[in-house]
């Protein structure tokens, strides 16, 4: 873990991998709930955590903390997302994996996923869990409009579009699950740390 200052009131924790990010996210969340430190926002990224709105003493305090315990594979809420595996790019993804579309769909349904971080749009979760060798590049030219509920892959992340928007992820499926609702608390169905299974609809 390495700390980098971000402006005058934020810190970036650099981690080795997503597992360390998860451990720090859980630890920081717990310590904030316990009132040990005040941050306005704890924002996980792929290999970092941003602490925004920190007190000046936070850096010294954080540097003194022991490494947080690893998050176990059974921590976090588990949700199933009913998915129709018939995305426009499913055949393309399957070809890149060297399997049939049917096997590609089975692989996606069999892989346990976890929300690593959110971004791009409210409620858009980056789901980790696919092995690195299944990573696929983004589309060379993003689609001007991807419908809400589209399930896509970019790199080794799986993502689901909460609302229709332009997008460059390779689409493998579709779900009716609502992913962002301002009347819910939390408003996002998939906050960081949530465990996800895509279940064939």
């Amino acid at each position: 873990m390495r700390l980098r200052p971000v402006g005058c009131s934020a810190l970036l924790i650099e981690c080795h991998d997503g597992a360390e990010v998860s451990a720090w996210r859980a630890e920081l969340w717990r310590r904030r709930e316990a009132g040990e430190l005040r941050f306005l926002d704890i924002v996980p990224g792929a290999t970092t955590i941003l602490l925004d709105g920190v007190e000046p003493a936070a850096a010294a305090l954080l540097a003194d903390w022991p490494a947080p315990p690893a998050v176990s594979a059974t921590d976090g809420r588990l949700v199933e997302i009913r998915t129709t595996f018939a995305g426009e790019d499913l055949a393309d993804v399957a070809a890149r994996w060297g399997v049939s579309s049917l096997v590609a769909a089975e692989r996606l349904a069999a892989t346990p996923l976890t929300v690593a971080f959110c971004g791009f749009a409210p409620g858009f979760a980056y789901l980790s869990g696919l092995p690195e060798e299944w990573a696929v590049p983004r589309l060379a030219a993003p689609r001007p409009r991807v419908p809400a509920g589209s399930v896509g892959i970019a790199g080794s992340y799986v993502g689901i579009y909460p609302a229709s928007s332009p997008g460059g992820w390779r689409l493998v499926g579709k779900t009716d699950q609502k992913l962002f609702d301002v009347r819910e608390d939390p408003p996002a169905f998939l906050p960081p740390g949530t465990r996800v299974r895509l279940v064939a609809a």
Binding site: L12, G45, A46, T48
Partner: peptide
């Protein structure tokens, strides 16, 4: 790899021309 960004961040896209994030900036 995607990471969190703050208000006032000076982001530099591929073309090298800086962009300063204001209130409606993306979170990562």
């Amino acid at each position: 790899p995607s990471e969190g960004v703050v208000l006032g961040a000076v982001q530099v896209p591929a073309d090298g021309q800086p962009l300063i994030f204001l209130a409606d900036h993306p979170t990562t």
